[in-house]
């Protein structure tokens, strides 16, 4: 991985990576990339990916409303770093992020 790629990845993940840290991240991440190489060696051409180990299928619930308790909603809103009335307050969102 190169510095530019690290910066793009950090932006996608919305993580601030300070200039002085980049060296360390690059060193560690490039070491981790060896894992990707290891996984290229076996022949898996005949194999499907395992996305879930469970054999359960079609797990769903009926369309029934169970409202969250008022006090829980209040508690969640009060946990917001900033709020206004019953809104969560955030920095100005420009249409295209």
């Amino acid at each position: 991985m190169l510095k530019e790629e690290l910066e793009i990845t950090a932006f996608l993940a919305r993580l601030e990576v300070k200039e002085e840290e980049k060296e360390r991240y690059l060193k560690d991440l490039n070491k981790m990339f060896e894992f990707i190489e290891v996984l290229q060696e076996p022949d898996i051409s005949q194999l499907k990916p395992t996305t879930h180990v469970t054999s359960l299928r079609n797990v769903w619930r009926d369309d029934i409303v169970k409202p969250c308790p008022k006090e829980t909603i209040e508690q969640m809103l009060n946990a917001a770093p900033q709020k206004e009335e019953t809104f969560y307050k955030v920095k100005k969102v420009i249409e295209a992020q």
Partner: peptide, 14 residues
């Protein structure tokens, strides 16, 4: 090459 490949190797292990 990365995630999808890993999930297939995971099948091999299982």
């Amino acid at each position: 090459r990365c995630y999808h490949q890993a999930q297939r190797v995971r099948t091999l292990l299982i």
